[in-house]
Design a binder for these strands. Structure first.
Length: 192
DNA sequence: AGGAAGATCTACT
DNA sequence: GTAGATCTTCCTA
């Protein structure tokens, strides 16, 4: 199991978001491991990005986080759901990557119990859904996905071939002109 | 206490 | 598919 190093996250958020596709997200609960393959991400920048949480009027703790150490986990609540982000940016910049969807790999039965849903495709095909399936809550805030002893981390996994596609971000009222949402083309768990 | 939120679900045309 | 209601959870005052 090869954990992605901090250096991986010390780059342009859009690059990190794109490169995270196909990687494995590992959630450790006691001795159990839940694993999902990352199939959809979005990049967010600093205050030059109107959709970013670094802009004025957003909670301060989020702003601070965006400037924090790359590889750190940022979790916040939207409506009644949790969203899972990883801090990613170049030195002295701000940014993060939002994990929007994963493909369940291991611990599927456990995920189903957490989500209370019958359809496998509905298990983790959205940012609020995957946090439910993996029991991701505020408690994981501040962990590092770069450490294999943290309750959640990201590993390289097997090399698999796939096509990457991109689009504009979802649910964002004031978006940047660039396309900052990345996903694996044709994957069943990509949200719509 | 209040307000705001990067979503989800349900129930329809 | 798409629109509308949802009514939780946290931070800041």
């Amino acid at each position: 199991m090869e954990v992605l190093p901090k250096k991986f996250y010390e780059r342009d958020p859009a690059k990190v978001a794109k490169d995270l596709l196909g990687k494995l997200l590992v959630r450790k609960i006691n001795q159990t491991q839940l694993i999902g393959r990352i199939v959809e991400t979005e990049a967010y920048y600093g205050k030059e990005d109107p959709a970013s949480r670094a802009v004025l009027g957003r909670p301060k703790y989020c702003v601070k986080f965006l400037y924090d150490v790359p590889g750190k986990v940022l979790i916040y609540n939207v409506h009644k759901y949790w969203l899972f982000n990883v801090v990613a940016h170049q030195p002295k910049k701000a940014g993060a990557v939002l994990i929007r969807a994963i493909e369940p790999i291991k611990g599927i039965e456990i995920m189903k119990r957490f989500r209370k849903v019958k359809n496998l495709k509905e298990l983790t095909n959205g940012p609020g859904k995957l946090t439910q399936a993996l029991q991701i809550t505020k408690e994981l805030n501040g962990s590092f996905v770069t450490q294999s002893n943290s309750p959640i981390f990201i590993i390289k996994g097997k090399k698999v071939n796939f096509k990457i596609s991109k689009s504009k971000r979802i649910g964002v009222s004031k978006d940047l002109p660039q396309k900052l949402r990345f996903f694996i083309l044709g994957n069943e768990w990509v949200s719509k």
